[in-house]
């Protein structure tokens, strides 16, 4: 078993066996975060940059902790405080960072494909931490890790993803990953957020949450991204909650041992009721906890061993 990729740009480029390698490696990293001294020397001397052109708390700090627990040096770079605000191009920004001998660059950008673009001229390993509405591979991997922890397998699990599928990179990465692993994915949302084209990814599409949720093993609610909405894309938050919000009543239609997930940050009382978000069946905080181990595994697998030539 080995992992041959140089970059992590999306789930699409990974095979089912790559995904299993990452999940199994992450399993071994979980224990480190439970130690009193939460640190191993593995990536000592490696320099990692968090290059975030969009706001983030969870993902950025999760990567930062993952790097630090592996003893790498990490610097944080956000566009608000950088020369990007002085009009520097993305390429120039990255090249000047790389001139300081970085080993890996973790990129979040509002344009789909930005991490891929960077990987075309960079020596460093590139990790996509979310690009536009394209992919957010580490989120999907930590979601998969959490599902595997709870359900032990993916085959034939019914996973319902509810919300603004169209604008969600989390949904896309999860759809790719879960279908590769043999789960049955059903996407649910208002028609404006759920173009019929999503069927080509091998998912089922439903506009009725009450129907779709029946017999579900996993319900993944997505944040309504108020900052990405065009005006008039849906009538009102109240209407959205009435039709697509996850409520106790709706949740009862899922399997008895169904679990609730959310990539965060939550809009309580919109896509999910506040009580459900805090209920025993909600594993939202588990997802955050597992995120560090999964990102440690990814850093380990990408930065370990001799430099690789493979380009994706």
């Amino acid at each position: 078993m080995s992992f041959k990729h140089k970059h992590l740009l999306g789930i699409q480029a990974l095979s089912a066996s790559d995904i299993l390698t990452i999940l199994e490696t992450a399993e071994s990293f979980l224990e480190i975060s439970a130690r009193e001294v939460k640190k191993v020397p593995t990536l000592r001397g490696k320099t990692i940059v968090n290059l975030f052109f969009e706001p983030s708390t969870r993902t950025r700090s999760s990567f930062e902790l993952a790097a630090k627990r592996l003893s790498a040096d990490i610097i944080n770079f956000s566009n608000q405080t950088s020369s990007v605000s002085k009009g520097e191009s993305l390429k120039d920004t990255v090249l000047s960072l790389e001139a300081m001998n970085t080993d890996a660059i973790i990129v979040r950008h509002s344009y789909a494909g930005a991490p891929h673009f960077i990987s075309t001229f960079c020596r460093s390993h590139i990790i996509n931490a979310g690009d536009g509405a394209h992919e957010h591979p580490t989120q999907a991997l930590l979601d998969a890790f959490t599902i595997k922890q709870e359900k032990a397998k993916f085959k034939n699990l019914k996973v319902v993803i509810v919300g603004d599928i169209l604008h969600s990179r989390v949904a896309r990465s999860n759809i790719f990953l879960l279908s590769k692993m043999g789960a049955k994915v059903v996407c649910v949302g208002p028609p404006a957020f759920l173009p019929i084209e999503f069927q080509q990814f091998g998912t089922q599409i439903d506009y009725n949450l009450d129907r779709a949720i029946e017999g579900a093993d996993v319900i993944m609610t997505l944040r309504i991204q108020l900052e990405r909405q065009q005006k008039n894309s849906f009538p009102s938050i109240r209407e959205y909650r009435n039709i697509y919000g996850l409520t106790e009543e709706r949740f009862r239609k899922a399997k008895k041992d169904a679990i609730i997930m959310h990539p965060g940050p939550i809009n309580r009382g919109v896509e999910i009721s506040s009580d459900l978000a805090d209920s025993l069946q909600s594993i939202i905080l588990k997802q955050v906890e597992n995120g560090v181990a999964v990102r440690m595994a990814i850093l380990y697998l990408l930065l370990g061993g001799k430099d690789r030539e493979t380009s994706d």
Partner: peptide, 23 residues
């Protein structure tokens, strides 16, 4: 004890060693 993360030949290996659990 799994010692993979403490190896001193981390960057010389052809491929990463699989990390197993320390229990």
């Amino acid at each position: 004890l799994d010692i993979t993360l403490y190896r001193d030949d981390f960057s010389e290996l052809e491929a990463q060693h699989m990390v197993k659990k320390t229990e």
